[in-house]
Amino acid sequence: MSLRTDRSRAGIMVETRGLRRVFSSRRGPVAAVAGVDLQVEEGEIFGFLGPNGAGKTTTLRMLTTLLPPTSGDAWVAGCDLRRQPRQVRERIGYVGQTGGADLQVTGRRELVFQSCLYGMGPAEARQRAAELLSLLDLEECADRRVRTYSGGQRRRLDIGLGLAHRPRLLFLDEPTTGLDPQARFRIWEEVRHLQQLGTTVFMTTHYLDEADALCDRLAIIDHGRIVAEGTPQELKRRIAGDVVTIGVGDSDRALVALAGQPFVREALGADGTVRLYVDRGETAMPAILRLLDGAGLQLHAISMSRPSLDDVFLRQTGRSLREQAA
């Protein structure tokens, strides 16, 4: 009990310790989530960034009482996930990856029904549905069947379903996947608006720009493990200096030629592209050109950039998230 009060006073909305989930598959047990420790603070937009199959959905389904953890502990919105699933349900909202609205039903009916499931009477539920339709700018399509909605309208309705009981903590699983850019920006605005209204948001994404632009803090997850955690700025700053990307015919030989050089902090490459992490790009680029020329390697392209979240991911996992998302 005292532990719980301490946690909520400290403004921690989610805390997990060694959270783990093993699925049995034909090839034996698979740890979809392999021991996750994280903290989400009150009022922040916390992002879970990772490629498909990283374990994002499995983690969220555990934290929202939908899936029992194999081991580990979690406290969600001040309640013990294992001992108080009911209290957790009353305090959180969840918007799953596939949404959750029935295509045959109108948006308004779905919102009224969801509000009733949270214990509101009919009049209160209708009132709440009207508020949500206005909040999410869905009044125009409120009385049409969900089947007729655009992708963005449907996603906003899904979010409305998660907000029916005014939860202080909202889980969003890939809220913008499959949406066109305009609809994505709309969702970003909604999420920021929710934050202003005092909601803590725990969202997953496999989009780098989304994580960068929207999230106050991030955990990068791969193969069920958190590989890095921090604000987007902190994460990028960990990769000090600049990134020089070169296109070269034989990336393996280029790596050999460049890897040992004192000005190269780290070099990663495959399939004709080499990424070099250097202290100062302006001075490194001429040196790189000379070296490759001396080694007789044909250079197609060269560019310099500030490190991105993809560089963080690449550094931690040896793979690029951009290629996987594409």
């Binding site: 009482t65 349900r89 596939t98 949404g99 499931l117 949270y118 214990g119 379903l161």
Partner: peptide, 16 residues
């Protein structure tokens, strides 16, 4: 169909 669409999960996450 409702299990696949997430309709059931959306109801399960409420205290119903």
């Amino acid at each position: 169909a409702e299990l696949r669409l997430g309709v059931v999960e959306r109801m399960r996450v409420t205290p119903v």
